[in-house]
Design a binder for these strands. Sequence first.
DNA 1: GAAACTAGTTACCTTTTGGTAACCTAATAT
DNA 2: ATATTAGGTTACCAAAAGGTAACTAGTTTC
Lengths: 115, 115
Amino acid sequence: MVKCIDKTACRFKLMASRDAMEVIQGKWKIPIIISLSFGNKRFGEIKKDIADISPKILSQELKALEMNQIISRTLFDSMPVTVEYALTPLGKSLGPLLDEVLKWGLHFRKQVVKK
Amino acid sequence: MVKCIDKTACRFKLMASRDAMEVIQGKWKIPIIISLSFGNKRFGEIKKDIADISPKILSQELKALEMNQIISRTLFDSMPVTVEYALTPLGKSLGPLLDEVLKWGLHFRKQVVKK
DNA sequence: GAAACTAGTTACCTTTTGGTAACCTAATAT
DNA sequence: ATATTAGGTTACCAAAAGGTAACTAGTTTC
């Protein structure tokens, strides 16, 4: 039975995984990132993509993603003002992680959910 | 600007990612899985590995992971009884996902957290 | 008889997350 | 004047997640 011998390395791993999870955790962050992976979008477009998200939650989650530098927010002073959200390079770098999440989700569904 | 044209495929993706996230979401599930990736462990050993988890939460999370068939629970009727937890093949199949989480977490920390 | 070890459970409480409904500002169209 | 569009905000509420402290059962050692 192998133990977590190098405790510093182990703690470092736990820290890194917690960091990553904090960024993508919650009901709506991954759907928003997936929506933006199909191209830059405006507030209303994301809202239309994700059917049952409320404006309050969408606004809140977009702010959180922006603070973590996953997305950018650009204001155009057209009339009426439009706002464009886009994935940053850091946001795009989530691609492989999200692919794995998706892949494993399908595997899980095949094995356990079974419908 | 590309949209999510194939709506059925898109909904399927969202469903799969939500399934996966439900299994690994929360403050303690990934730490528990990482702990068990170092070998089968008993309740008290996992508790020692994860320093600040309370027995209530550990018990709760182990039950959830067992229900999702990520871990197995084996009772030995020694004196006093001991219980061994282990990753199932499905649990082990989370390996690549967790590697990506870890990798991205380190990348994120280098780029954003910066200390 | 008292303490310790195993693997938890229970009651209670706080914090975080998610959700609804109504409202706001500025401009343009009817 | 009124409705509509865009991009939100606000107040209020419910549910889920997380945490603390104390307690349980059975057995063994001091």
